[in-house]
Amino acid sequence: MNVPVRQAIADAAPRKMSDWLLRWETILVGLLIVVIAGNTAISPYFLDIYNLSDATYNFSEKAIVALAMALLIITREIDLSVAAVIALASLATGLAAESGAPLIVLLVVGPAVGIVCGAFNGFLVTGIGLPSIVVTIGTMSLYRGLAQVVLGDQVIKQYPKDYTAIGQSYLINWPPLPYSFVIFLVLAVVFAVVLHKTAFGRKLYAIGNNPVAAKFSGIPVERIRFLLFVLTGLLAGLAATLLTARIGSTRPNIALGWELEIITMVILGGVSIAGGSGTIPGVVLAVFILGLITFGLSLINVPGIVISVILGCLLIVSIAGPILVRRLLRGR
């Protein structure tokens, strides 16, 4: 019934069950349950705490970078050079190890190289105003190319024990938690809080939804984007430190193709490639889904490249599915 007198405007819409059910994160939780159930059914080795702990190795480093990538994509930018940054940072760590640098230097040099690479990307995108996709395709070649120039077809293997221990032992012994996984979890909480609870996070969404209006609202759009490129570089450098410690060697093709896997994590996590939407819990769920599918399939000896077919299909179906469903609902 229409009431001519205006009512006070509610603070928020009444919560509806259907809204909650249709949330992307809810769908991801469902998917994660299916994956876990499926893996349990497929292999008796899946639900073993040590196996699960080892499984985290194959995604934690990528997942760390995915957190920063999510923020970057939310602000309508992208960084395709992350895997190349990992290669360059790993190389720097290797060179430091060869010259006999102490542990602390080995831990810091990767992130430092990452910061420099990220700052260069950020400068080209925000300082000169170039599209980030082209810039980072260029720096992707440049960074990995530089690693290749220095390394040629050599491999660096002389890493001290105290360094590789970080990649190959647990930070906490029970439950068995590797360094990289703990670092990812801590960073995920920090990122979630920053993105969803602080003024900085609010600004990121404003930039992603309308950069012009954000700029008119006094938000330093370019400076924030620059910071995010540096942050992405930093985390790629950190991932390089962890990855190098884990595998104990540096080759020019280290982390090859990771940029696509990282971006897949972010997009499957519900971050719109057009910017402006997405959540950290979504990305974390997507990380687990992708990581556990990979782990489950490798338990039954599916080759890696076939796993990538399945993950590629999952990416497309997960984006296309909701569009089709919405169309069918509207068409009715």
């Binding site: 003024a199 939804n209 609202s217």
Partner: peptide, 29 residues
């Protein structure tokens, strides 16, 4: 549409966009 409003965001978030710093209490909005 282009310069003023951030259409996909809510009314609350739009209204406080240019003054968000004044709503920060202990680091959080």
């Amino acid at each position: 549409q282009e310069q003023g409003a951030v259409l996909p965001l809510g009314i609350r978030e739009n209204i406080t966009l240019a003054s968000i710093a004044s709503h920060v209490k202990n680091l959080f909005v």
